[in-house]
Simulated assay, not measured.
Amino acid sequence: MTDEAPRALLERLRAIDWEDEDAPYDHAVSRAALLREHFRRTALWARAFGAELSWPYIDLAKLIDPTVRADDEVLAELKEYLDEEVGWPQVEATLVAAVHWTAFRSGTQIALPDLDDPYEPLLLMYERGGAFTMESNFIDLNGETLPVKPLREHASLEPVVSLDPAVLDALDQQDQ
């Protein structure tokens, strides 16, 4: 199996400015919409594979085929990067799952349902303003707080938001 897709994602992650204190507030509305879209997509994937109880923080690649994982070298680089730059366990777990997902998507022969990429909205959310923190059943995005709702409330077939940068920017402009 090739490590090109996971390595490309690792490079994308390295470009995120986790220290930008203004970005989470400048992009608060779009980041909240992107997180809700991530929850919607992962809810659909969890339902498709009978993993409702593992949702919302789920390593979908491991669930579907635990034999297809990212290369150890990429994972070692990712761990080093996460230890130095990120430091939030929930965020780190989602990034590791996303890297495994890219390896899975490029290396699996399993027929998959026609569902949208579950991690892309989350990655865009990180790129638009860094991490999140969790307290109880709430996710704090520094500018927006979202309750963690049950899977059934997220498993809609209708997207929450377009991933188009212009649409996301427009959401943030409406808030100002």
Rank of each mutant, 00 (worst) to 15 (best):
G107A: 06
E80A: 15
A111N: 07
E153Y: 09
G129C: 08
R69T: 14
D116M: 03
P66R: 12
L35H: 10
A98E: 05
E92H: 05
D65S: 13
L82S: 04
A33Y: 04
S30L: 08
A103I: 03
K149M: 13
A48T: 00
E120H: 08
V99R: 04
F49Q: 09
H27C: 11
W101Y: 14
A23F: 00
I110L: 09
E52A: 14
N137P: 00
Q90D: 14
G87K: 02
L63R: 11
A93D: 14
A23M: 07
T102Y: 06
T133G: 14
D20I: 04
L63E: 06
L53F: 09
L115W: 06
W88K: 11
L82P: 00
D114Q: 12
E127D: 12
I110R: 15
D116K: 05
D117N: 12
D72Y: 01
A48M: 00
R152T: 09
P56A: 02
D117H: 10
L124P: 13
G87D: 11
F132A: 07
H154N: 15
F138Y: 15
E85C: 10
E120K: 08
E73H: 09
Q90L: 11
R128L: 15
E120A: 14
Y126K: 01
D117G: 10
Q109G: 14
F39P: 08
L141E: 00
P24S: 03
L75D: 12
G50Q: 13
P56G: 01
F49N: 08
N137F: 06
A93W: 06
D65F: 01
T108D: 03
L122M: 15
P118M: 03
R31N: 06
E85H: 11
E144G: 05
W88Y: 12
P113A: 01
E84H: 09
D71I: 02
E37M: 02
V74N: 03
V148E: 11
G130Q: 08
F104R: 06
Y25G: 10
Y81S: 04
L78R: 02
L146P: 13
V29K: 12
E92D: 10
L82F: 00
A93F: 05
R152K: 09
W88A: 14
N142G: 02
M134K: 13
H154M: 03
A43V: 05
E92Q: 11
I58E: 08
R41Y: 07
Q109Y: 03
V86Q: 09
A93H: 09
R47C: 10
R31T: 00
I58G: 03
D65P: 05
E77K: 11
L34A: 11
A33D: 02
F39L: 15
P56Y: 01
S136E: 14
A32K: 01
A51Y: 08
S54I: 01
F104P: 00
S106E: 14
